[in-house]
C-alpha cells in the first residue's frame, strides 16, 4: 500500500530548483570534475555515493560553508535569487546546546542573530514533532530520537526554502529512524530538500529524485512510480532499494579511494 503524500495544506512554502555545476580541487588533486546536478524544486533529492566522493563537500558548497579546497563552478536557484540565508541545515549529530532547554534550542537561530524568538511558532512546531510535553527539558534528558526531533523543529523554525540534511537519521535505531523519516518528509513537504545518505532504503522511500555521485560524475537513478512517502513493503520500493544497494556495492568494490579521499 502506498502512503499518501501530505496534502497541500501541509505545505509551508515551495522551494526553488537548484543547479549545481562545477569541479572541486584539493591541493593534492581533484575531488570531482565537471559534476552537474539539478535538485528538483519542492522535492526530496537523495544523494548517495561511496565515502570520500564529495557528497558532503557539495552540501557544504551549497550551504556556503568553508571548504579545504577550490571550487570552480556555479550554484544557482531557478528563481534567480541568491542562496544566501535561504538554506537551512540538519546534521547527523543533533547539535543541540546542552545549556539550553528544548524550546530555547528550537529558537537558536533567532537567539544567535540577536532577534526576538517566535516562541509561539516554536511551541507549535515542537507539538507537531511530538515534543510538546518536553519544552523545558535539557537535551541530556532526551533520547536520541527526541533530540533529532528537536533538531528537526529547530530546522523548521528557520522556515527556509531549501533544507540540506547530512545523514540526519543514520545514528538512530531502525524504528526511530523510520518514524523520523516520515515526520521529516511531512514537515519538510514543499521545500527543496537535499538528503545526503548512505541508506538505499531511505532513498527508495523518500526521494522524488535519487542522485548517485561517483568519481565519474553525478547520475540519476530511477525512482519508484509511486510518490513519496512510499510504503516500505511496496514491491517497487523494495526492488528500488535492492537494485540501488547492488549498484552501490558494485561501485564500492571497484572504487579505489586514496586515504585522503576516504577520510573526508
Amino acid at each position: 500500500m502506498t502512503r499518501p503524500a501530505p496534502t497541500s495544506s501541509a505545505t509551508l512554502s515551495t522551494g526553488p530548483s537548484i543547479h549545481f555545476k562545477g569541479s572541486f580541487t584539493f591541493s593534492t588533486g581533484p575531488l570531482f570534475e565537471d559534476v552537474s546536478l539539478r535538485l528538483g524544486g519542492g522535492e526530496w533529492n537523495c544523494l548517495l555515493g561511496p565515502s570520500g566522493v564529495g557528497k558532503s563537500t557539495i552540501l557544504r558548497l551549497i550551504l556556503g560553508l568553508q571548504t579545504d579546497g577550490h571550487f570552480d563552478g556555479e550554484i544557482t536557484a531557478d528563481d534567480g535569487a541568491a542562496l544566501t540565508n535561504r538554506v537551512s541545515y540538519m546534521a547527523q549529530s543533533d547539535l543541540l546546546l546542552p545549556w539550553l532547554n528544548v524550546l530555547e534550542n528550537t529558537c537558536l537561530g533567532a537567539r544567535l542573530r540577536g532577534q526576538t524568538p517566535d516562541t509561539e511558532r516554536a511551541h507549535s512546531l515542537l507539538h507537531r514533532v511530538g515534543l510538546g510535553a518536553h519544552l523545558d527539558k535539557r537535551p541530556a534528558s532526551l533520547s536520541g530520537g527526541m533530540r533529532q526531533r528537536a533538531a528537526l523543529a529547530r530546522t523548521l523554525v528557520e522556515d527556509r526554502d531549501i533544507v540540506l540534511l547530512d545523514e540526519p537519521f543514520s545514528a538512530l535505531d531502525a524504528g526511530t529512524r523510520a518514524d523520523m523519516q516520515e515526520l521529516a518528509a511531512k514537515a519538510l513537504w514543499g521545500k527543496t530538500v537535499l538528503l545526503v545518505t548512505h541508506d538505499p532504503a531511505e532513498a527508495a522511500r523518500l526521494a522524488h529524485q535519487i542522485i548517485l555521485l561517483s568519481s565519474g560524475g553525478a547520475t540519476t537513478w530511477p525512482t519508484p512510480a509511486s510518490p513519496p512517502i512510499r510504503d516500505i513493503h511496496a514491491p517497487d520500493t523494495i526492488s528500488c532499494q535492492a537494485a540501488l544497494l547492488d549498484h552501490l556495492r558494485a561501485g564500492t568494490a571497484i572504487t579505489n579511494q586514496t586515504p585522503q579521499e576516504g577520510a573526508r
Binding site: 550551504l63 556556503g64 560553508l65 541545515y89 546534521a91 546546546l97 537558536l108
Partner: peptide, 23 residues
C-alpha cells in the same frame, strides 16, 4: 568548539561575534 556547531550557526546567519558570545 565543535566545528559542526559553528557551521550550523553560520548557516543560521550568525556573525562570528554572535557565535563567540552565544556558542
Amino acid at each position: 568548539t565543535p566545528p559542526a556547531l559553528l557551521d550550523l550557526a553560520k548557516t543560521m546567519g550568525a556573525t562570528p561575534r554572535q557565535s563567540l558570545w552565544r556558542l
